[in-house]
Simulated scan of single mutants.
Amino acid sequence: MLENGTDGPRIIAAIETAWEVLQESHPELPDVYVIVDNAGARHNLVTPDRLEADMRLELPVHRDAIAAGPRAVLEAVLHVATHALCQVRGVSETSNRGMRHNKHFRDTAVELGMKWPTGEPPHATKGFSPVPLTPEAESGYAPLVAALGKSLDGVVVGVAESPAKGKSGTRLTLQCECTDPVRTFQIGPRIASVGPIVCGVCGAEFTER
């Protein structure tokens, strides 16, 4: 979790700005809002449970990426952006419940400045993931990494609490401070106990209602 309550909105704004920079060169990318993901199971855009016509998709960024620094955050965002480009184009980029990344993911990643090492076989379970940045892309993204670094400066990411045991099948309904529209979703108690989930719209933590 983020130790300082003011860190969340600042980090979220910086990551959303980074996404907007990617949209300038890749207008196919949809509008998003960022959530800090403590579970770590998601690596693509998420459709909210109650999707309105003008609502943005959720861009989850794992707390470990934030703790690792601006380069890791950028790589996480680029990974999600690769999935997003495939999805808006109707291209199937993964198999095995999203775990294995195929050649379509690899080839699309090239458009975002990443390239799979020549001659290197795919990972046994992840496939072509993660795809590393090229030296040219590292140079091009340097100003963006620097901007993210300023936003992450001084941020302390605490250790997530041990997951609590809950009854099988139990679901919690969490809600933030948004009112138009009200934003809620359901989640298992074990995942909810890992740490706070922050809304990218109002900046408040989702809590049980």
Rank of each mutant, 00 (worst) to 15 (best):
L2M: 01
L2H: 01
E3N: 08
N4V: 06
D7S: 03
A13H: 03
A13E: 06
A14S: 08
A14N: 03
I15G: 01
I15S: 03
T17C: 06
A18S: 11
V21P: 00
V21A: 06
V21N: 05
L22T: 03
E28D: 15
D37Y: 00
G40M: 01
A41H: 12
N44V: 11
L45V: 08
L45P: 03
V46E: 09
T47A: 13
P48H: 02
R50V: 08
A53I: 11
A53P: 02
D54H: 11
D54S: 11
M55A: 13
M55Y: 10
M55S: 10
R56H: 14
L57P: 03
E58M: 12
P60K: 02
H62S: 06
R63C: 00
I66W: 00
A68L: 10
A68G: 07
G69R: 02
G69C: 07
P70G: 07
R71S: 12
A72W: 02
L74T: 02
L74E: 02
L74F: 06
E75L: 10
A76R: 01
V77G: 01
L78H: 09
V80Y: 04
A81P: 04
C86R: 02
R89T: 09
R89D: 13
S92P: 07
S95C: 13
R100M: 14
R100A: 14
H101R: 05
K103S: 14
K103V: 15
H104A: 15
H104T: 10
H104M: 12
F105M: 05
R106Y: 06
G113V: 09
E120R: 15
E120Q: 13
P121K: 11
P121E: 11
P122H: 05
H123T: 11
A124F: 06
A124S: 11
T125C: 09
K126N: 12
G127I: 03
G127F: 02
G127H: 01
G127T: 05
F128D: 04
P130D: 08
P130L: 12
V131C: 04
V131L: 09
T134E: 10
P135G: 13
E136W: 04
E138T: 11
S139Y: 12
A142N: 08
V145E: 14
V145I: 15
A146V: 13
A146E: 15
A147E: 13
L152W: 04
V157T: 05
V157I: 11
V159A: 04
V159C: 02
A160N: 03
S162D: 13
P163Q: 15
A164P: 08
A164Y: 10
G169M: 07
L174R: 00
C176P: 00
C176Q: 00
E177C: 07
C178T: 07
D180C: 10
P181D: 03
P181Y: 08
R183L: 10
Q186M: 14
Q186F: 12
A192H: 04
S193L: 02
P196K: 00
I197D: 00
V201W: 04
G203D: 05
A204H: 05
A204G: 10
F206E: 00
T207Y: 03
T207Q: 09
R209E: 15
